[in-house]
Write a protein that binds this DNA or RNA. Structure first.
Lengths: 193, 193
DNA sequence: GGTGTCAAGTTTACACTGTAAAGATTCGAT
DNA sequence: ATCGAATCTTTACAGTGTAAACTTGACACC
């Protein structure tokens, strides 16, 4: 993917993708606070007001980046889940470990995907970035008569919370190992003892 | 607490607290993106460069606000935990419900407390805002020979993740009820069945 | 082939932000 | 009473988002 446009041509051709790519580069190298419309424009070799034409405003660009980041997250999870375990618990632990691995490998993208807030309330896009891999992996643990969303949300909350506490430095210098936290999932879907 | 200073006097007297108070007001009414040094200064009736003298830069002000927010959170949790249940599980559920209640009542303050990132790495303050209420409440569930931090982190991760997923709108229009998610804690500290 | 239309970028402009530097004011210890 | 230091103001500057008017080029249509 070429980021900088051909200066001789007035039309870029694929500015939308180039700006998102530039944004991801900035996010990775300098973090969320460094992300700006003007820097993305400069990185794409385009005037500073060009991004507004494509995304409306900064929030629009951020959501476009989040969309692309979610696509990469999904692809990461798909390949990670390919290492299939034969037990349902093994698969569940596998995707949770993958989830944590992505959060650590791409912390800025992870926050864009799961923490970005919408200020435009009239935007019709649904913010619930549900991913079917989690649903499928949780399915074997849903007791009859209970809402599958409950089981999924329990798993998601535990892993998401652990990821963010660690990313935000709230767990001190030596956080507990992943499997110690994920051990709680051995009781997922069970009735109380 | 008077926010605006007496115009006749050059010294404010308690500008530090007044600026933090102004910041909390802005956070509550307009959210994190609206928080700025200049707005806090204006709300405190002081020149726009005054905050830098107290907090160094914007990040310093944010951490000062986070500190005050954490004090209020602690006070909230202390009074909330006062409604003591006689069982250890009842107490655990109680503080988790209180935690979620605070997150919903003060979402901006909650994010300041638990999500603010440090860019100044040389700052000596520890970001691990551990609160002893959680530790005490989790103590009865720590099996002999295991690190208490593991149990605390399991509880904290579940509740923190759930709170943030809901705050960030990732759980759709009808999130599962709190107790359905907290039901996972009935197995906290147990050996696998 | 000329023409109209429209999307894609550019230019210009403005208000707002953080932050640095230097000056003014006041407090407090001596 | 005086001097130093802390506190706040003033001034200045670079960077930011965003709106408006303008320019360029692509493309269908006759």
């Amino acid at each position: 993917m070429e980021l900088t446009k051909d200066k001789s041509r007035h039309h870029h051709g694929n500015l939308h993708a180039a700006l998102v790519e530039a944004g991801i580069d900035i996010l990775r190298s300098s973090g969320l606070d460094a992300l700006s419309l003007r820097k993305c424009a400069a990185l794409a070799g385009v005037s500073h007001a060009a991004p507004a034409h494509h995304f409306g405003n900064l929030e629009g660009l951020k959501w476009a980046i989040a969309e692309e980041a979610f696509a990469r997250f999904s692809e990461f999870m798909r390949t990670h889940a390919a290492a299939a375990d034969d037990t349902a618990h093994g698969r569940l632990l596998g995707i949770c470990r993958g989830y944590l691995a992505f959060a650590r490998a791409e912390p800025a993208l992870y926050e864009m995907i799961f923490c970005l807030q919408r200020k435009d309330p009239e935007s019709k896009r649904d913010a619930s970035t549900s991913y079917s891999i989690l649903r499928d992996t949780c399915a074997p643990f849903v007791p009859p008569g209970t809402d599958p969303v409950i089981i999924e949300t329990q798993v998601w909350s535990l892993v998401h919370g652990f990821a963010l506490l660690e990313l935000h430095g709230r767990l001190g210098d030596t956080p507990p190992p992943d499997d110690a936290i994920l051990a709680l999932l051995r009781h997922i879907g069970q009735e109380p003892a």
